[in-house]
Design a protein around this nucleic acid. Structure first.
Length: 491
RNA sequence: GGUCCCGUGGUAGAGUGGCUAUACAGAGCUCUGCAAAAGCUCGUACAUCGGUUCAAAUCCGGUCGGGACCUCCA
């Protein structure tokens, strides 16, 4: 099925096709590993996950998905410095080697990051690579050299800056985001750090070494400029090195459009002489919590760990986020996560029912016309293919479920429907295709239930109610059927 | 200050000018000793004022309100 995507470069929804027909190359801006992931991060990582899954399952493409891990920046340096309050014993023992300290802190959080991703069903096998910025310093230096040779960079007090005005004379600066240099907000920080750049809009490619900070030697025309890479240069160098330019899709949060992505693009044009770093740029909107932008000062800041500690299943959060389109601001509330739990369980129960029904046949009948399965696949996939419209995809799924109860499907139909559900879940990843888990009922619970059933059959309501109270106390719910009962653990 | 987006029922959230979004919550019904579960049904929704149109939640303008980016930020 053909996929259509909103492209920030063209500012409209365009039909997608990869430059290399054999595979889609996609790069996502990953986390800076100085802390555990918060739910806003998770929304930003959900987008590329959903996208690569849709490209594979709905589009039928092979996908090479790369997500970088930024392990060198102001925050990681600050928090790994000797004497930092953020240092935790689990990270190891600090030494006088600033780079070693940095590596310990970032390795710790990178590990936490992978755990958070996994809890969100963003799985390792789908990544082609998760490169660390510090492993690509030579490539970054080479790129900076290339940019200097092109005349778009200058050295100032040991740092290297990108010269935006020189670049803008021959290239378009502002392709992803129309900036208005004449009207910078009043009171904007002109130059917060000590580095000396010629123009406010210039950005740093290489930061001069400061005492006590990690650094790499950098030979520029025979002069050593010890220091570390700027923020934007990492992604340009790593995406080129790993995927090659131009590649197909670049993803990130809306906040990265400017300056991060705009600068990445400019660096690739200036240094690699590629007009397009990527042909499609896809950005997810932000998430708010209870109607306000999430921030620590507002007290509405939640990490994944916070939610898990509250007893929330991360997959319910994933489901809740799927109910909103990735390009609209999503309002996260705890009520809605609770609703997501119920809704997701409903889908899961349906899958169990269909699975059970399909177990009566070995394989799909010859020449069978699985109309139901076809309807399900078409309605859901069409929505996903249309700029990842997950709310409509879920709506289509629920409509299908209400029109095709498992009981009215023939076993053959059930089997083909199950196959489609499996494909849908390869994209949404919020339920599981499996047999209904066998509930192990302890003997004492079973005995009480039997006793209650007997009392109930004898119309001894008070005894029946008393025994039900006993079961409730033990954490079990007894559901009376017409001729039999079921027991399930109370959630 | 500049640029831009959004205001939909109790909540979240889709909506391409005329046709049921969907989910959760709630109400009623079926079933039922009571409940639970399941199924069915239901609800004076489109910020506001004006305009365009045979027709506007959907297009245009004003007003009010909220938000984003321009600065580290997912």
């Amino acid at each position: 099925m053909n996929i259509r995507l909103f492209n920030t470069l063209t500012k409209r929804i365009d039909a997608f096709s990869p430059l290399d027909p054999s595979r889609v190359r996609m790069y996502s801006c990953g986390p800076t590993v100085y802390d555990v992931a918060h739910i806003g991060n998770m929304r930003a990582f959900l987008l590329p996950d959903l996208l690569q899954r849709t490209l594979r399952v709905v589009g039928g493409f092979d996908v090479s998905w790369v997500m970088n891990i930024t392990d060198i920046d102001d925050k990681t340096i600050r928090d790994s410095a000797v004497g930092s309050e953020k240092w935790r014993p689990e990270m190891g023992t600090q030494t006088t080697d600033a780079l070693a300290n940095l590596k310990m802190l970032t390795a710790f959080y990178a590990e936490e990051f992978h755990r958070d991703l996994a809890s969100f069903n963003i799985v390792k096998k789908h990544f082609a690579a998760q490169p660390l910025a510090t492993d690509y310093i030579p490539q970054m230096q080479a790129l900076i050299n290339d940019i200097m040779s092109s005349g778009y960079a200058y050295v100032s007090e040991g740092s290297v800056y990108f010269n935006v005005s020189a670049y803008a004379k021959r290239h378009e600066y502002g392709r992803l985001f129309a900036i208005d240099k004449e009207n910078f907000r009043e009171g904007v920080r002109i130059d917060a750090d000590e580095y000396d750049r010629e123009s406010v809009s210039d950005f740093v490619l290489w930061k001069a070494r400061k005492d006590g900070e990690p650094y790499w030697d950098y030979d520029v025309n025979g002069t050593n400029l010890p220091g570390r890479p700027g923020w934007h240069i990492e992604c340009s160098a790593m995406s080129k090195e790993i995927l090659g330019l131009p590649f197909d899709i670049h993803t990130g949060g809306v906040d990265l459009r400017f300056p991060h992505h705009e600068d990445e693009l400019a660096q690739c044009t200036a240094g690699y002489h590629e007009h397009d770093q990527a042909t499609f740029w896809v950005h997810n909107e932000f998430l708010e919590v209870e109607g306000k932008k999430m921030s620590k000062s507002l007290g509405n800041f939640y990490t994944m760990r916070d939610l898990v500690a509250k007893g929330i299943d991360p997959l319910d959060v994933r489901y809740a986020m799927l109910q909103a389109h990735y390009r609209s601001v999503y309002n996260f509330t705890f009520d809605i996560v609770q609703g997501a739990t119920t809704a997701r369980k409903k889908i899961q129960d349906y899958v169990y029912d269909v699975k059970e029904r399909s177990s009566f046949v070995e394989r799909e009948a010859e020449g069978a016309d699985p109309v139901a399965a076809r309807v399900l696949r078409t309605t859901v996939f069409t929505e996903l293919a249309d700029d990842l419209h997950t709310p409509k995809a879920l709506a289509a799924l629920f409509s299908f479920m209400s029109q095709h109860s498992a009981a009215m499907l023939s076993p053959e139909e059930a089997l083909s429907v199950l196959g489609v559900l499996s494909d849908i879940n390869d994209v949404l990843a919020v339920f599981e295709i499996s047999d209904r888990p066998v509930v192990i009922i302890p003997d004492n619970v079973s005995a009480i239930a039997q006793a209650r059933w007997a009392a109930r059959t004898a119309k001894d309501w008070s005894e029946s109610d008393r025994l039900r109270a006993d079961l409730t106390a033990l954490g079990w719910t007894m559901n009376d059927g017409k001729d039999s009962f079921t027991l399930e653990p109370t959630l």
